[in-house]
Simulated assay, not measured.
Amino acid sequence: MLVPFPTDWSTALVLVPHPDDPEYGVAAAVAKWTSAGKSVVYALASRGEAGIEGMAPAEAGPAREIEQRESARIVGVESIEFWDFPDSDIRNTPELRAAITEVIARVQPQVIVSMYGGSEWGPGMLNQLDHREFAAAVLNAYDILDDKPRWLFENSPEVTHVEEVGDFIEVAVESLAAHAKYLSVLDPDTPVVDQARAQVEMVTAANPDYDNQRVVTFELKRRTR
């Protein structure tokens, strides 16, 4: 049975490897949370400098950071930080785990939301190695903490919890569409807003196991109490 995402928390930390990772998955949920007065902090392992084909990393990284900051603003996230781990070569290293434990200790969230760490999002839909390595690093870092946040979720197709987001679809589309340079190169034949809408529609599809409501899906990976 699917369970509603918890509500008895005040601060969430969203941990992802790249710019646009929140917008491809959880932006509608984040918009709902911030609209309810909750604090959401983003921490990104890289600036996505390898993510725009034909653009030098020294140019792409700053461009993608600007787009990510605007995307975060649209959904009400005021606190966002970027680390400098190498895009497309993010690995579960002691250095990455140290960065994760440091931000958790500093932010003191009750909820962590991380990337899905499985091998496939669905049949034939491979999950990037950066995502898998980053998700493993988050789990490893969490497990060594003395003072653990109450919940650790992954935005996942292996669903245990859902956040109903029917009223937040348009703001999620706007947030993803803010990655205009990235999306325009990714698919030059499709308008950016159409790409954004298709992705948001896919990740917030009506769930037949939850009264056909539009939801963002999560898998509970850790809980302390």
Score class of each variant (00 low, 15 high):
Gln108Ala: 12
Ser119Arg: 11
Leu96Ser: 02
Arg106Cys: 15
Asn127Gln: 03
Ala27Arg: 00
Gln68Arg: 07
Ile52Phe: 01
Ala172Asp: 10
Arg91Thr: 14
Ala177Asn: 02
Phe82Ile: 01
Glu49Met: 01
Val75Asp: 10
Leu13Asp: 14
Phe218Cys: 10
Ala12Lys: 00
Arg222Ala: 15
Glu53Asn: 15
Gly166Lys: 02
Asn207Trp: 00
His161Ser: 04
Ala36Arg: 06
Asn212Phe: 09
Ala137His: 12
Leu129Lys: 13
Gly124Tyr: 15
Glu49Gly: 04
Trp151Leu: 11
Leu13Cys: 11
Lys221Tyr: 03
Ser184Ala: 14
Thr101Trp: 01
Leu220Asp: 05
Glu164Asn: 03
Leu44Thr: 11
Asp8Phe: 02
Asp143Ile: 03
Thr204Asn: 08
Val138Met: 13
Val107Asp: 08
Asp130Met: 04
Met202Tyr: 08
Ala178Glu: 03
Glu174Ile: 05
Ser79Ala: 05
Glu95Phe: 03
Val26Met: 11
Val14Lys: 11
Met125Tyr: 12
Pro6Val: 10
Ile169Asp: 07
His131Gln: 14
Leu152Gln: 13
Ser46Glu: 01
Thr11Asp: 04
Glu95Thr: 05
Glu23Cys: 04
Glu70Thr: 13
Leu2Gln: 05
Ala58Ile: 01
Ala45Lys: 05
Glu133Val: 03
Ala43Thr: 15
Arg64Lys: 14
Gly25Cys: 10
Glu102Asp: 15
Ala99Asn: 01
Val162Gly: 14
Pro94His: 10
Trp83Val: 00
Val77Gln: 02
Arg73Thr: 10
Ala172Thr: 09
Asp187Pro: 02
Gly117Gln: 12
Arg223Phe: 13
Met1Pro: 11
Phe85Val: 08
Phe134Asn: 00
Trp83Cys: 01
Gln110Glu: 11
Leu126Glu: 12
Ile100Arg: 10
Val138Cys: 14
Asp189Trp: 03
Gly61Ala: 07
Ile74Pro: 06
Glu70Phe: 04
Pro188Ser: 06
Ala99Asp: 01
Ala63Leu: 09
Tyr182Gln: 14
Glu49Thr: 02
Gln199Asn: 13
Leu176Met: 03
Gln128Thr: 08
Arg225Lys: 07
Leu176Phe: 03
Gly118Ser: 14
Leu15Gln: 08
Phe85Asn: 09
Pro157His: 08
Glu78Lys: 04
Ser175Cys: 09
Arg91Val: 11
Ser175Ile: 05
Ile66Arg: 09
Asn212Trp: 12
